[in-house]
Nucleic acid binder design. Structure first.
Lengths: 141, 141
DNA sequence: CCCCTATCTTAGACATAGTCCAATCTTGGA
DNA sequence: TCCAAGATTGGACTATGTCTAAGATAGGGG
């Protein structure tokens, strides 16, 4: 699979040094099971490009989400995390103790009962579902 | 069903005017489909008790969640909403346009494929699942 | 009924995550 | 090489939530 950097070039994005380092943060760690906060990304990007600003990191991550190249993930704290695994439909497993996040494929897509949906919100059309499975990972049990 | 106020007394909580007013915010609106933010609650509580402080509202809501009398709901913005419907297992329907939230019963409990969970997070034990169904309500289509 | 103390409430400072803006700089096509 | 569109910047600003130390109060024991 192409790297994030390559896909951005393919979209015709102007390739600045800032965007290159931000994309590389996700390239180097690999596409699986990465859920960095914006400030995590800023910290890692700044290791390669010390003068990069927080505003640029926030702007760029937001643009990557809009372009569908990153997924914004929320697990109940107030922080947005960014997940480069946009090519496989998946949900998230969250350890209640250590807050580790894992990508997981739900075997059964959650389906809301149609009659119930129409009872509580007549005319509502469901387009997608996000699931957070909560539990404990091996190390925290 | 008992009101929230009554249940708190049953738990042996000291009943201050502040707690009474906060509980009544949830009592008056009814138990279904209420998802107020802390500042919403503060505003409504202050209508009855103008000198109530934000800190008290935040503390009290947190204690009610810890006691299992309110549910803290997160739908992807950075705000915690408080849901008094703790007696029926349910998930949430979120309108992408107007951000209305509805309680809904998922007919099929989402179940992660056991083999996949063990592949990505060996030893992980799932204890619960939160689902947010995203879509559009009748008025926003 | 009143007092005492454990508990609750308070104002405001602080923390965190994210947004916005006007000035400046840079990329990449002509 | 030049230049305009677009990207980046620092820092002020907003929103949501947390913390602290001082003062107030509920409600049980006497």
């Amino acid at each position: 699979m192409e790297t994030l950097s390559e896909r951005l070039i393919g979209r015709g994005w102007r390739m600045t040094s800032q965007r290159r380092v931000i994309a590389r943060v996700f390239d180097v760690v690999g596409a699986q099971h990465i859920h960095l906060t914006a400030d995590d990304v800023h910290e890692r990007a700044a290791a390669a490009l010390p003068e990069i600003s927080r505003a640029t990191v926030y702007n760029t991550l937001g643009e990557m989400v809009d372009a569908g190249e990153l997924l914004a993930v929320h697990v109940g704290d107030r922080v947005t995390r960014y997940d480069p695994n946009v090519h496989e439909q998946h949900h998230h497993l969250l350890c209640a103790v250590c807050s580790s996040i894992f990508d997981v494929h739900a075997a059964v897509l959650p389906v809301a009962d149609a009659a119930d949906v129409q009872a509580v919100a007549p005319g509502f059309v469901i387009e997608s579902a996000d699931v957070i499975f909560r539990g404990r990972c091996a190390g925290c049990r």
